[in-house]
């Protein structure tokens, strides 16, 4: 009997442990340049979640142009969370696929944007074309690399950054801003579908004099390829990019992952989450983390889409919808 009990107790314990611990799988569908950010963050969150609940969580990542990623979710990619480049793309998931409510952006602080970024210029070492501001990249003979605004969230930020600068320079004259951006795209020989592809075009393929890049992407390029190859030029004015995050309610519920998906996004606002964002050259929302990493960014005057363009819906409709301004000014 004693032997039986000796065998039974550890067996029962093992069964209880194995029955209690479970592995949860999440799919984070994100945009192009967040690979490194979420690699770091996923590991940290898994550790946090294990300590908190005893459960393992494995987060799979999917990356691509933000618009393409949103369309993939609409078409059936089973994302538990989306962390895209701009709110409009998550709005599309909400409105077209009805996978989350229309007011999703109100569910997390700062309009569900736990970190921000902006658009800067990555130029070749020594800045041979003497590019200092947006004016310089519309000059004839300057080859500009930027992705396609139809598919890339980053590209839309680039476009709107240029437009905002032109408005600022030319007395808020839309016609002049349009001409300015038209001249800019005249200098763009290739349009990649996403920001990472554009970075590859500029950095690895050696194409172009300047890459319009997410700030974090530009610093990452410096970190990866060395400061002896590229310089970062911060323009006098740029746009405040606010990449949002959201739980895809219906899919998370279907997968039984709603709780962990919510916690996954909330943890982005934690001290550790904010620190990881800063480490990966995003601008943290939290004041303490922002102050810690402020030194790595150059000062720049930032404007928002809401201020200049009246929000993403309007900006999208005016500039990037089929037949919009971009279609009118860009001649491939």
């Amino acid at each position: 009997m004693k032997i039986f009990l000796k065998l039974l107790v550890p067996l029962a314990f093992a069964l209880a442990v194995s029955a209690g611990a479970k592995e949860v799988k999440l799919l984070n569908v994100s945009y192009d340049p967040t690979r490194e950010l979420y690699q770091d963050y996923n590991a940290a969150f898994a550790k946090y979640w294990k300590a908190k609940t005893g459960n393992d969580v494995v987060v799979a990542q999917s990356h691509g142009g933000s618009g393409k990623q949103a369309q993939s979710v609409i078409n059936g990619l089973e994302a538990d969370v989306v962390t895209l480049a701009l709110a409009y793309d998550i709005d599309a998931v909400a409105s077209q696929a009805k996978l989350l409510p229309a007011d999703w952006q109100k569910r997390l602080p700062d309009n569900s944007t736990p970190y921000t970024s902006t658009i800067v210029f990555l130029v070749r070492k020594g800045n041979p074309k003497q590019i200092k501001d947006w004016d310089d990249i519309v000059k004839p003979g300057v080859v500009v690399v930027t992705p396609n605004p139809k598919t890339s969230g980053g590209a839309r930020w680039n476009y709107l950054g240029a437009w905002a600068y032109a408005l600022d320079q030319y007395g808020h004259d839309d016609a002049k801003a349009r001409d300015f951006v038209k001249r800019l795209y005249k200098n763009v020989p290739v349009l990649d579908s996403g920001a990472r592809g554009a970075t590859t075009t500029f950095v690895e393929r050696g194409i172009g004099d300047v890459l319009l890049a997410w700030e974090n992407e530009a610093y990452l390029a410096l970190k990866q390829f060395g400061t002896n190859k590229f310089d970062i030029v911060t323009p006098s004015l740029s746009i405040l990019a606010e990449p949002p995050v959201a739980v895809v309610d219906k899919l998370a519920k279907k997968h039984g992952t709603a709780d962990v998906a919510q916690a996954y996004l909330e943890y982005l606002y934690s001290d550790e989450g904010q620190d990881i964002a800063g480490r990966n050259f995003y601008r943290p929302r939290d004041a303490k983390a922002a102050a810690k990493y402020a030194g790595q960014f150059s000062p720049v005057k930032l404007v928002t889409v809401d201020q200049v363009f009246g929000g993403w819906q309007k900006a999208q409709k005016t500039h990037f919808a089929d037949g919009g301004v971009f279609d009118q000014i860009f001649q491939p």
Binding site: V190, L191, S193, I207, G208
Partner: peptide, 12 residues
């Protein structure tokens, strides 16, 4: 540059 651009355009 033109060759590189053409090559990249072809890839795209």
């Amino acid at each position: 540059q033109q060759v590189r651009i053409l090559g990249r355009q072809r890839e795209l």
